[in-house]
Design a protein around this nucleic acid. Structure first.
Lengths: 220, 220
DNA sequence: ACAAATGAGATTGTCGACAATATAACCCTA
DNA sequence: TAGGGTTATATTGTCGACAATCTCATTTGT
């Protein structure tokens, strides 16, 4: 599906990707208004393609539109973060369950390899910016579910918003070692084709992650 | 949120709602190509608003678009139906859990009233076209979760596709009495604020519903 | 005869201009 | 001076035309 090979083909694609990046990384401030004319000059495209990009951003829950008024970048709130993690818990739990059922032995083998790679890095201490590895792990399980809706909801819809929270609230790569153990147990459950356990462990994993993030949020 | 009061304000809204209706009810055939020019004459609007409508339909998973090629109405397959119900099980399970936590006593009271209304109808035998009542029941719980993402994913995103399957594969209002009992138990769990049980019962309810629908699918 | 190249036709993508609506400033009245 | 109404301005919504791309039939060469 749209793993990392989502390459723009049309101008609207390029604009959408660029705007999404700018919003997630805070270059376009959270809560700010999106003026179509302004953006069309900024990105050097017509208003039509900006409009299409904004529509797609709305589908990702990154902006909110009101008819005849305009679009604003979503504002990040503690409640919003909690709601997001609730949905993640639900969907990724199901993804883990389905992955235990539907992943090929080959894919499970690759997942174990990935896990070992992470283990080496954790051991040698270079566990900084574990972000990418964590995302990679979760993506593989999501894709392993082989469920189209699940995949697009999580990867196209929710993960960018999660990343926006992570980046803008300054919580990159936490819980390195403990998260690794949780990953290991999840992979074990998937290897054993234990759907029930895989779902339960994934849900707990995300629940812990939520609690951790909430703690960081309070300390700000 | 978007309960039943989603009223069109712009031409693109109207076109989107109309097209969605036409697709769900099969007036625009599943799998057929959506020609922008053709549709713009059919609905008497410009191509721009048709394009916006198609984009929104894509967000609902009712059509699929390919760059420089065009959009097609999704094709309905047994596998697609299974995937859809897996997502429903996951999301509505969580919705029931959150409803048990977040619904007000007032809202729970209303839910019980609704249930009694259904019970009367079931007893007097006029259980035909229980569809609307069933949807109403599920909507209240979804809204009761008070989770924005959950609500929009289910109501704006998934339910129209579910209805499309129901309508086009000719499976309206099945499992009347048994479904009623399941609803009753779910409401009891919510009344008791038993999150765990509410989620479990809702997941089972949807699982049964899936099995029933699959059986009907085979007999076609 | 078959495969690749080419060209015509149709469809989607992009653009700038105009219409409709909301926001804000201003004026008038009590 | 305060409040309501009105006009002015800016922004979004809609439209038709043009450009870019794909599809498919035809042609051409081996």
């Amino acid at each position: 599906m749209t793993f990392f090979n989502e390459q723009p083909v049309t101008a609207a694609d390029k604009t959408f990707f660029q705007m999404r990046k700018d919003i997630v990384e805070g270059e376009i401030a959270s809560g700010s208004k999106l003026s179509e004319t302004e953006l069309s000059t900024k990105y050097a495209v017509s208003r039509a393609v900006v409009r299409e990009a904004i529509n797609r951003l709305e589908s990702c829950n990154l902006v909110e539109r009101k008819a005849n008024v305009g679009a604003r970048v979503v504002t990040l709130t503690p409640e919003g973060l909690v709601e997001l993690y609730q949905v993640r818990e639900s969907l990724e739990g199901m993804a883990a369950r389905l992955a235990a059922k539907n992943m090929t032995d080959q894919e499970i083998g690759d997942l174990n390899v990935l896990l070992n790679t992470h283990f080496q890095k954790v051991k040698t201490g270079e566990s900084y910016y574990q972000e990418a590895g964590d995302v990679d792990f979760h993506y593989r399980i999501i894709l392993g579910s082989k469920n189209k809706h699940l995949i697009s909801m999580l990867i196209d819809g929710i993960y960018h918003l999660v990343r926006m929270y992570r980046v803008q609230l300054g919580m990159t790569g936490p819980r390195i070692t403990t998260a690794f153990d949780e990953h290991k147990h999840i992979v074990q459950a998937i290897s054993n084709r234990d759907e029930e356990l895989a779902e339960m462990l994934m849900r707990r994993h995300i629940l812990y992650s939520k609690n951790n993030v909430e703690k960081k949020l309070e300390s700000n």
